[in-house]
């Protein structure tokens, strides 16, 4: 690990020991292309680009699998870590902010959190999934506005929301504009939590369709 970070001369003589040669070659072949990773994540977030996801997957999945396997000592569970981590990458790519850190750091955080929850489930028999509270992936409140204006054309948004059925509008506006939690909305609108959740899901589906139309 230290070798990778130390500054190795770029030109090596043949006298170099085999260990150093190994370190150098792995250093050269494995130099992480951070801008490229960021670009792929952006394509996933904005265009739901499957090809970009395939690239990201090919880069991370074998490494995640190996790390997870050494930590959990089970191939089946390591596979679960890969699947969960990568599916989080797919679903949360729009939350990645390259001004806050490298793509590797972001994916590492997801992997570490998934592994932590899995180990906790095994050891403490708890399915409380505390990792996102301990290591939050996005400081949601401050970044919320940015995320919004970055990924959804907010100027069209109000108009599109107004086309939703009244009961879905209430939920979307409460959740996104008034920053109420789903639980708070349930109390506020005097509806079961399940209803709030399904209305929000329906509304988001419709919004996505309509916003997608504008993109195309």
């Amino acid at each position: 690990m230290q070798l990778v970070h130390s500054e190795l001369p770029s030109h090596r003589t043949d006298a170099t020991s085999s260990i150093m040669t190994y370190a150098t070659s792995s250093n050269m072949t494995n130099k992480i292309d951070h801008p490229q990773l960021c670009q792929w994540l952006k394509s996933i977030a904005v265009d739901r680009d499957k090809q970009a996801f395939t690239e990201v997957f090919s880069f991370f999945a074998p490494k995640i699998k190996r790390i997870a396997q050494s930590k959990i000592n089970s191939e089946a569970l390591a596979a679960e870590v890969v699947q969960d981590t990568m599916s989080n990458v797919w679903r949360k790519a729009h939350l990645f902010d390259d001004s806050k850190g490298a793509a590797t750091t972001w994916v590492y955080t997801i992997m570490r959190n998934v592994t932590f929850d899995l180990l906790r489930k095994m050891k403490a028999n708890k399915e409380d999934n505390l990792s996102d509270d301990i290591w939050p992936l996005a400081e949601s409140l401050n970044t919320e506005e940015e995320v919004f204006s970055d990924h959804i054309q907010s100027r069209n948004l109000q108009g599109i929301i107004d086309t939703l059925p009244e009961n879905q509008q209430q939920v979307v506006k409460g959740f996104y504009f008034m920053e109420m939690s789903q639980e708070q909305l349930a109390v506020h609108l005097d509806l079961p939590l399940g209803t709030i959740k399904s209305r929000l899901r329906l509304a988001l589906g419709k919004l996505k369709l309509k916003l997608g139309d504008h993109h195309d």
Binding site: F57, M86, H94, S140, K208
Partner: peptide, 17 residues
């Protein structure tokens, strides 16, 4: 696995309050 993951259209809501 890639097919399975990308078949899902679920997106994590940006705002978690």
């Amino acid at each position: 696995i890639i097919d399975q993951i990308t078949a899902s259209n679920d997106v994590e809501p940006a705002a978690v309050v």
